[in-house]
Write a protein that binds this DNA or RNA. Structure first.
Lengths: 159, 159
DNA sequence: TCCGGTTTAATTGCGGACAATTCAGTCGCC
DNA sequence: GGCGACTGAATTGTCCGCAATTAAACCGGA
């Protein structure tokens, strides 16, 4: 029933190339479709999707450093520094230089930022509904994506 | 065995939100992991991944208009116009204003652009191998992604 | 104590993605 | 033929993502 990995090598180059591109292309397409849907739902909150991810992280646990945010969201300071500053300019967040280690900057919710959560909790159910997948499928998809990311990371940065 | 969609509504809000975010976040993470791998493999060719997609399209069928490229790759002119100009600056492509309809611009491979194909065909097998999924899993993944994109598109742009 | 290596943010530069606008060219309809 | 609506590219502006660099703070060992 299950096709083993070694069988991939037995495919004709054409078949392998085609399937591979379909999957990778489909991945990008789905990712952008998600972005588009989030954009339309987040417009009222004045957030972009990456900004929303940062807010989610803060709602779960306030006061992480930029470094910790980057680790959790897989983003570097080149992305996070201006993003967090935009959140600060919007009055949702406050940046504080740590006294203990003056290199690090921790990010804290303002009252306004905390209140935004109540608007935000209505969004995920609409996303889940729009995805059109049932629970089993979401679990399957998540499993496949996680394994793939793990393997890809290993391939791009070989130990 | 299979969980029906209606069961999604029976989940506690917390469960649904968490699973949804994991999936959406995983999708972005995988997408970026793919980008990183392609970037490392495409560096020798001097192409980025979106540029590579355009070249793939041209190798399959030369001379599409910018509009047709946008339809196939789901990109708009704001992305494609400068991208194609960069390919032209690199000598891989030539833009021609159509005589029949002077609004449209068709994109054609140069000799150099055609030759690049021989370098490029070595890349997909390495990507497929790096993904670490077997054929069944790739098919499953592709199916899930396609259905999701379809549903998401419908949700963001309701008829 | 000082010195070198490391860590943390921030900045710069470039390419990609999208919204919104502009402009020329096309087509239909009167 | 001429007017109005539409279409295809291009442009502008904003944000995201990453590479590479800079600068400041930290830490450890000679």
């Amino acid at each position: 029933m299950s096709v083993r990995e070694s069988d991939l090598a037995a495919l004709s180059p054409g078949e392998m190339l085609r399937l591979d591109h379909q999957v990778c292309f489909a991945l990008h397409a789905t990712s952008r479709a998600f972005d588009a849907l989030y954009r339309s739902l987040l417009r009222d909150l004045g957030l972009t999707y990456p900004q929303y991810l940062v807010m989610l992280t803060l709602w779960e646990s306030d006061g992480p450093t930029v470094k910790e945010l980057g680790t959790r969201l897989r983003l570097d300071s080149g992305t996070l520094s201006p993003l967090v500053k935009r959140l600060e300019a919007a009055g949702l967040v406050e940046r504080r230089r740590s006294r203990r280690d003056e290199r690090s900057v921790s990010v804290h919710l303002t009252a306004k930022g905390g209140e935004l959560r109540e608007q935000a909790v209505r969004i995920p159910p609409r996303i889940a509904e729009a995805s059109g997948l049932d629970l089993d499928e979401l679990r399957t998809l998540h499993g496949l994506l996680s394994r793939m990311t793990e393997r890809l990371d290993a391939a791009v940065a070989p130990a």
